[in-house]
Amino acid sequence: MDWAGMYEQFAQIAKSGGDLAFWQDFYFKFYQAFIYSDRWLQYLKGVGTTLLVTACALLLGVALGGVVAVIRTAHDQQPSGRRDPLLGLLNIIARVYVTVIRGTPMMVQLLIMGMVIFASSRNFTAVGVLTLGINSGAYVSEIIRGGLMSIDPGQMEAGRSLGLGYITTMRVIVVPQAIKAVLPALGNEFIVLLKDTSLITVIGGKELLYAAQGVMSRTFEAMYPLLGIAAIYLVLVMIFTWLLGKLERRLRQSDRR
């Protein structure tokens, strides 16, 4: 079957003002949005960028969030008599960071990063990763902090009473249990992050939404590109959710009775 020929034929009819049947209209616009002049490649590249930005921002966010959470928890767990001044300073920095990032819209942060701080940078993807990572870190830190605080203090005491240091006990005893406890909340945060990558379009990041907008501006057709990328986001999120579910089940091994 001559798919391209069929498209050309419908395009002619549409151009000359003729009426297309519903299926013909659907075929024409679908072909135009995704297949004509290999446009699917643009979407594919967009998916690649979206996944890359998500993965990098996720790593940055979890690393940043983990550090901030541990600083704040360690600060709060100090005995009231001896407060470490360095930890106090780090704690203030951490609190300012969380307050500022959570208190301003993501879109505004992106624009500030892209158009003020890194105005001369052409590497929009990197700026996007940095902004999303920093943003995500603030939320992740609160999630992890909640997880750390939910662990019975007796676990820390047991580790310390065996002669393990604070950091070792955190690393080997408390954090692994906390991660298990916060995994559903973290998964939610990952999904938000994946979808928020679409925002980097505003600073010129070439991800999935950018691809759709490119096609829209050429074809003057919004529906198919937008519905198309919505479906792609949905599929990505569903894959993500499935993977997280598997991970959760693996971590729950020790809960089986």
């Binding site: 019975d152 007796g154 676990q155 005491e157 047991a158 580790g159 310390r160 009473s161 065996l162 002669g163 393990l164 240091g165 005893i173 692994p176 249990q177 298990k180 020790s254 809960d255």
Partner: peptide, 22 residues
Amino acid sequence: IDATRAKMGMVFQHFNLFPHKT
């Protein structure tokens, strides 16, 4: 303190075993 605690074992009312370890 860590070296000292290694010499003073402690047993707790609520056991405080590590649930994620065998």
